[in-house]
């Protein structure tokens, strides 16, 4: 007999495995890039915008704006500040890291 597994367990597995992936990946980040690491993690954690978009576009009565969608719209703006700001400032920093020029 095949038993049903709660989808929650699948997500939990993904979560736990990702923690381990994160652990090993982050230890391999060179210390000189720790500041860009923080700004880029900031940008990617704003993928929470996905939830904000769902909240904003949810059908709730007839009007475009309801209490819950307003929260969503506001969250979209906040997350967008982070996404654009985070990736751009990371790019700005990384563009400054240069190798020694070959002399003569």
């Amino acid at each position: 007999m095949i038993m049903e597994i709660d989808p929650f367990i699948f997500r939990l597995s993904i979560f736990i495995l990702s923690i381990f992936v994160g652990y090993y990946v982050v230890w391999s980040v060179t210390p000189s890039l720790h500041t860009p690491l923080m700004s880029v993690t900031n940008a990617i954690s704003s993928v929470i915008i996905v939830g904000a978009i769902i909240a904003a576009l949810a059908k709730y009565g007839d009007s475009v704006f309801s209490t819950s969608s307003l929260f969503g719209y506001f969250a979209i703006s906040l997350a967008a500040i982070n996404i654009f700001g985070g990736f751009l400032v990371t790019h700005r920093m990384l563009a400054m890291y240069k190798k020694k020029k070959k002399e003569k």
Binding site: N42, S45, G51, S68, G72, A79, I81, N82, G85
Partner: peptide, 30 residues
């Protein structure tokens, strides 16, 4: 940069709160 990163963290935190609130008010959407 430290101020900027701290400021950005606060936005992620607030966005998380807003999404949670919105899901609480309108759970059908999710």
């Amino acid at each position: 940069m430290p101020e900027l990163v701290a400021g950005f963290h606060s936005l992620v935190g607030l966005a998380a709160v807003l999404v949670a609130v919105s899901a609480f008010i309108n759970p059908e959407a999710f």
